[in-house]
Amino acid sequence: MPEAPEYTPYSIYVLEPHADYATADNGHIPIGAIAERVYGKPYSSLSGCQRDDEHIGNDSVKLYELTSDDDYLEALEAFDDTELYLGWDSRTHESVRKTGMTELDYWLSIRIADESTPATVEANPPKTQDLENAVFEDRFFADRAFTPSLKLVLADLIRRGELPRGDFLFRHWW
């Protein structure tokens, strides 16, 4: 009789965009609440997840593997990259890139209009439009226009000591 194979156990933390019942103690991490506390603005985790995998739907599950040094360092390197891809310009037939900013800096520069600051961009700007310091009328359109990759945000939060090192399962539903 052959010997049973040995398995290495490891933890997978479940990221929840809805923070009502999620706690680190039960293995569920309220990613929206942590990101808002750290960055000072709400984070659209589904849009970030879709940046990593454009075909992911509303009722979705995605595993972010950041246990190994290679996965973690690759995510950090991408996060710290100072060249931002804005999209393909069909008029010039060229890629549009912005240099000198990380995805996080770019995202944090985007704001929502209030009494003292009027909107400066339309609800659905072209993908190639530079949105640095843009002010949107509504958070929905701001999140849709640009939300950083969830994998990159996870790497940054791990680097800051806000999340445990490990693998994260993102689970989203409406």
Score class of each variant (00 low, 15 high):
residue 114 D to Y: 12
residue 161 G to R: 00
residue 76 L to T: 02
residue 73 L to T: 05
residue 135 V to S: 09
residue 117 T to H: 15
residue 140 F to C: 08
residue 23 T to H: 00
residue 7 Y to R: 12
residue 166 G to A: 01
residue 112 I to L: 10
residue 94 E to Q: 13
residue 100 G to T: 11
residue 83 E to L: 13
residue 138 D to I: 13
residue 40 G to D: 01
residue 116 S to P: 11
residue 44 S to P: 15
residue 161 G to P: 00
residue 165 R to D: 03
residue 37 R to F: 11
residue 127 K to S: 13
residue 102 T to L: 11
residue 95 S to V: 04
residue 99 T to R: 14
residue 128 T to Y: 10
residue 172 H to A: 03
residue 111 R to C: 06
residue 91 R to D: 15
residue 64 Y to H: 03
residue 67 T to D: 10
residue 170 F to H: 07
residue 47 S to Q: 07
residue 63 L to Y: 01
residue 35 A to D: 05
residue 124 N to M: 05
residue 44 S to E: 04
residue 165 R to C: 06
residue 1 M to Y: 03
residue 131 L to V: 11
residue 115 E to R: 14
residue 15 L to Y: 07
residue 143 D to L: 00
residue 56 I to K: 11
residue 15 L to P: 09
residue 57 G to M: 11
residue 159 R to K: 12
residue 150 L to D: 09
residue 65 E to P: 01
residue 110 I to D: 01
residue 147 T to C: 15
residue 131 L to E: 09
residue 132 E to Y: 15
residue 100 G to V: 14
residue 18 H to R: 04
residue 113 A to R: 03
residue 100 G to N: 13
residue 59 D to M: 07
residue 34 I to N: 04
residue 150 L to C: 07
residue 12 I to W: 06
residue 39 Y to T: 03
residue 110 I to K: 01
residue 118 P to M: 08
residue 135 V to H: 10
residue 75 A to N: 12
residue 160 R to M: 10
